[in-house]
Design a protein around this nucleic acid. Structure first.
Lengths: 233, 233
DNA sequence: CCAAAAGTGTTCCTCTTACACCCATGA
DNA sequence: TCATGGGTGTAAGAGGAACACTTTTGG
């Protein structure tokens, strides 16, 4: 920054959230239906304006998360995605939006608490269809968030944050398959994932979901990066 | 965003630039010495405030780039890094800074044109030493920018943007060695890099730098991602 | 000829892929 | 008992690491 003319341009800063989860066989995103103009009745990301006095960006994201969905930031992975500042993105004026992505396990209930009028979970594939529109430039943000999720599965242990506290290797593989939209060999996936030190810690428990041999249960381990990476084809 | 109370919190948006180059055997970053308070005489990233009426974020970054260094955005790689919005980061008030990283070949001359009082190139290793301080939270930003550069070398063809328009494979290898701070086997590097389709296009030219067999000259090819990736050890 | 840097060939090893096979349960 | 999913073994191939060796220049 090279300082000088200390004016206050009329710009507002918002924080928006792309909250992703895996549910019912698809990657879903939490959206709100707007209750007031602009874009009344259209779909938008949960979010709000940054309060200038009392919070940094990460705190603002955590606050909006709790206000609009009831989720707690400590329970999920929340990271900055990108900042959007196109000129025409908000008809009310100049709004720069700092966007965050969150990854959560199958949510207890969208629990439309707080500010939000109506909170819904939708498969991202539905939202990203060409004929579907969203408020502001939020559709582009959704696409970027999904892309981020897909990439992070490759080289981090993030996949497990989409799973319940205790999960089987098949649960985890299905997360990969759903997010990537790609079939994976269960045998090779099993071997690879169990060979990454610190990714999975066995609980000792076993479950039978539908039929067949019971699967071992695991919890998330301390590892955060995946080495060697799980590469897509 | 869930709209509602349409107030204008007193927040200012800045755009800062982390311009990286490889020069004289080290990874260097372009910094300005501040001429006025706060942080007078301290080192800072080039940047400035976002003009609310006429430019999106990318344009603002390109404008600041040209104003403060004389470089043109078309000639280099400029991408958004991260947004910094800590509470105490600017003593004048609440400033949210959208930061960009740029990668350029050995610069013609820091050419202190435009706003900047004094523009200097410094090795990032010097700047990141514990005893060195910078204005605002710019030291943290420098660290993040360097980290981004290191990672991008692994899976993109970005390394070539640090080289002159025509370069040898040894030039490119030295970029990797300098940015990563790690020796690479020249033979294996040569084989690997030439086997990536579209990364390098031979110009037919040859040069002898100091001694030995002349090296073939290459230009950047159309490829942008590196597959398979060049992994660090 | 010799030093030095460019570039090729070769071997070993790790990881991926594809798939045969065995294991443990419910019906 | 058989169907179903969990989990292991294994062989072929791709890519990485280490390094011997050849090529082409300047002095």
């Amino acid at each position: 920054m090279t300082d000088d003319d200390w004016t206050i341009p009329e710009i507002t800063v918002a924080v928006d959230l792309a909250i992703l989860t895996v549910k019912a066989g698809s990657l879903q995103i939490m959206l709100v239906k707007r209750g007031i103009p602009p874009f009344e009745d259209e779909l938008a990301l949960p979010g709000g304006f940054l309060e200038s006095t009392a919070e940094d960006l990460d705190s603002a994201a955590a606050r909006e998360l709790t206000e609009e969905t009831g989720l707690r930031a400590e329970d999920l992975h929340l990271e900055q995605l990108k900042t959007y500042g196109g000129l025409g993105r908000d008809p009310r004026g100049r709004v720069v939006s700092v966007c965050y992505v969150a990854f959560t396990p199958n949510l207890p209930a969208p629990a439309a608490g707080g500010d939000a009028r109506e909170v819904i979970l939708t498969p991202v594939d539905d939202v990203l269809r060409p004929q579907v529109t969203m408020a502001f430039d939020h559709k582009e943000i959704v696409a970027d968030a999904v892309e981020r999720a897909r990439n992070k599965l490759e080289y981090t242990t993030l996949g497990a944050t989409f799973c319940a506290p205790e999960f089987t290797i098949t649960d985890l593989r299905q997360v990969y398959e759903i997010v990537w939209g790609e079939r994976l060999d269960p045998r090779n996936f099993h071997r690879k994932i169990t060979s990454v030190p610190g990714f999975l810690t066995p609980t000792g428990g076993r479950v039978t979901r539908q039929a067949g041999r019971p699967a071992a249960l695991y919890r998330r381990g301390p590892a955060t990066i995946l080495h060697p990476a799980m590469l897509r084809t």
